[in-house]
Amino acid sequence: MPKVDVDHSTSIEPISVRKVSKWKMLKRDKWLFLLLLPGLIWFLVFKYVPMWGALIAFKDYSPYLGFWASDWVGFTHFERLFQNPDFYRILKNTLILAFYETIFVFPAPIILALMLNEIRFTKYKRIIQTVIYIPNFMSWVIVASLSYVFLTTSGGAVNVIIESLTGQTFNFLSSPEWFRSMIIGQQIWKDAGFGTIIFLAALSGVSSEQYEAAIVDGAGRFRRMWHVTLPAIRNVIVILLILRMGNFLDQGFQQIYLMTNSLNRSVADVFDVYIYFSGITQGAFSHSTAVGLFKGVVGIILILSTRYIAKRLNQETLF
């Protein structure tokens, strides 16, 4: 197999010769700038103009008084966060769950896409594809309510089957040990199918000649998967993984909240639930913004570390 990836970001394009002055480069690339401009303006207007909102983490913001009339309080909100007796528990829960999400939920659509890619009956493939993308549209409320119906120890279908096989039942819904598996399972169920779309799009770039060449080389089924299919989506995987790190501490509030109960809260408290209750229901805008900033800083550190590792592994990282 030839080396599959060309590192485009560092390859020098013929016309971009170093000697050209900046002015000339600007002039040469004027059309590119034109293409860039609308999007860039959008980012500045809709993403950067409201960015002053991040500063309310350092104020005691009251919507009625407005930004300027609210008092500056420095790092008070951060101190409060770190001094919260539950902080380390919340941090730990969030990190563990995020870690599981990264190693179980993140690869699920990739595996599913690879499996689909091996299906040769186009009709079958299309039906499966269409079906597995449906759960994405089911709200968490429905997912939670059906989870109860299937998993409850009082006659839930899953426990009935398990009981008939093993003679015992499992408290999936109430025991802290099962909480994370349940959350991960629900996420895979809901999002894996939809997530395949992007990988299937990447796979559409693989030509049949590549497979033919691999066959000529005597590559078997699995080697072809390893050497042709996987490399074709490797770029996307790496980029998605790096970007995912930026939001590493994000968990869907709604899902977690709906699955939390008095018996499993010890493992279910995560930042997004904390933010919800301190920010939305208690009106503590400044405090929840501070928590958001803290999460963001963690995100930046993780994104940069992952990028560093990826670069060491000779992966294209785009930036």
């Binding site: 991040a54 309310i56 995100g299 785009l318």
Partner: peptide, 17 residues
């Protein structure tokens, strides 16, 4: 690209928007 990526991590929030 940095300008873009920064917005993945930090957002202004509901009220400023």
């Amino acid at each position: 690209i940095y300008i873009v990526i920064f917005t993945i991590i930090f957002q202004g929030g509901m009220i400023p928007t």
